[in-house]
C-alpha cells in the first residue's frame, strides 16, 4: 500500500518536471535562458485557480473527459513500478499486466478524442483524427515490443519484465532488447506528441495534434489534461528506464534503500528527458503523412526484435 501511494506521488509529482527539462534543453540549444524547469508546476497551479470557459455546444462528455483521461492515465501509472525492487514490483497493480496497461491508456485516448469532437470546433476534430491515426499505427509495434520483453521473462506482467531486466547485467546489449529499445523510443516520441511527430510548443493548426484536441479547454480542466499528458509521458519513460537501464547493483535494505532507489529513478528519467530534449533539438518535425513511415520502421524493428529473441538467443 505504501508503495502504491509513493508511486502515485512520484509519478504525478515528477511528471511536469520532465517537460520542464526538455524545454530547458531546447532553450539552451537556442541560446535562450528559457523558463525555469519548474514552469509547468506554476502553470498547472495557476490554471487550477482560474475560472473556466465552456463551449455551449459541449455536452457532459466534455466535462467528464478530463477526469476520465486523468483517472485512466494514473490508473495505467499504477501498473508500471517506478523502481524495480522487490517491494515495488510486488505491489504493482494486477502484477502490471501489459495488456491492461495498453487498454487502460486506450480508455483515456478514447475520451480525449471524443472531447476533441464535442465542441464542434474544426481544430478538435482535426486533432482527434490525427491522434487516431498515429496511435493506431503505433499500437502494434508497442504490443510486439511488450510481447517480446514478456517472452524473455515468461510473463506479460510489466513487473516480471522489469525483474528479468534487472537480472540481466546490461539488458540493452541483448540483441532482442536493443531493437525493442529503439521501438520504445519511437513509441515514446509519438505517444507523447514529441517533435518528429508533433510539436508540443506550437499552436499552428496545420501541425497540432494533442494541442488541437484540448484547444477548447481552460482552467482546471486544461490543467488536468496537461497533467495527464505529462503523466503518460513519464510512464512510458519509466518503462524504458526500468526495462533497458535497470539498477543492477543491490540496494541497501529499509528506508534508505527506498530513498536511494527513488533518487536513482529520478536521475535516470531526467537523463532520458535530456536525451529526448536533444532528439527534439536535432530532428525536424516530419510531415504528417511521413509519420506512417516512422511507424512502419517501428513495426519492422519490433518484428526484428521478436525474431532476434528466437534466433540470436534470449
Amino acid at each position: 500500500m505504501i508503495y502504491i501511494i509513493l508511486q502515485l506521488i512520484i509519478i504525478i509529482g515528477l511528471a511536469p518536471l520532465m517537460n520542464g527539462i526538455i524545454r530547458k534543453i531546447k532553450a539552451i540549444s537556442q541560446k535562450r535562458k528559457g523558463a525555469s524547469v519548474f514552469q509547468m508546476y506554476y502553470d498547472i497551479s495557476k490554471l487550477m485557480r482560474k475560472d473556466m470557459v465552456v463551449s455551449d455546444t459541449a455536452s457532459w462528455i466534455y466535462t467528464a473527459a478530463p477526469y476520465v483521461v486523468f483517472g485512466s492515465t494514473v490508473a495505467a501509472a499504477l501498473l508500471v513500478p517506478v523502481c524495480a525492487t522487490e517491494g515495488w514490483l510486488n505491489s504493482a497493480f494486477m502484477g502490471g499486466d501489459a495488456l491492461v496497461f495498453l487498454y487502460t491508456l486506450a480508455l483515456g485516448r478514447f475520451f480525449l478524442m471524443l472531447a476533441g469532437l464535442d465542441t464542434g470546433s474544426t481544430f478538435g476534430g482535426m486533432g482527434s483524427s490525427r491522434e487516431g491515426l498515429i496511435s493506431s499505427l503505433l499500437e502494434p509495434s508497442m504490443l510486439i515490443g511488450l510481447f517480446t520483453l514478456g517472452l524473455a521473462s515468461g510473463s506479460l506482467s510489466i513487473s516480471r519484465m522489469m525483474a528479468e531486466s534487472t537480472a540481466k547485467a546490461v539488458p540493452v546489449l541483448n540483441p532482442a532488447y536493443i531493437v525493442i529499445f529503439i521501438v520504445m523510443i519511437i513509441v515514446l516520441l509519438a505517444e507523447t506528441c514529441r517533435i518528429p511527430v508533433d510539436d508540443p510548443a506550437t499552436h499552428l493548426e496545420l501541425t497540432m495534434v494533442h494541442e488541437a484536441m484540448i484547444l477548447e479547454y481552460s482552467g482546471r480542466q486544461l490543467a488536468l489534461m496537461e497533467l495527464a499528458a505529462s503523466v503518460k509521458q513519464l510512464i512510458i519513460m519509466t518503462l524504458i528506464v526500468n526495462m533497458f537501464f535497470p539498477i543492477t547493483f543491490a540496494l541497501p535494505a529499509g528506508a534508505a534503500g527506498v530513498a536511494l532507489a527513488i533518487l536513482l529513478y529520478a536521475a535516470r528519467v531526467m537523463l532520458l528527458s535530456v536525451l529526448i530534449g536533444i532528439v527534439e533539438v536535432c530532428t525536424v518535425k516530419l510531415r504528417f503523412f511521413s509519420v506512417p513511415n516512422l511507424a512502419a520502421i517501428a513495426f519492422i524493428l519490433a518484428l526484428f526484435g521478436f525474431v532476434n529473441y528466437f534466433v540470436l538467443g534470449r
Partner: peptide, 23 residues
C-alpha cells in the same frame, strides 16, 4: 482515482466559476 481527483482539484484550486460561451 476519478473520485479522488474531483475533491483534490477542488481543494487545490478552490472555487472556480465556469462560464458558457461559444466555441
Amino acid at each position: 482515482l476519478i473520485a479522488a481527483t474531483v475533491p483534490a482539484v477542488r481543494i487545490i484550486g478552490g472555487k472556480a466559476d465556469s462560464r458558457k460561451y461559444g466555441t
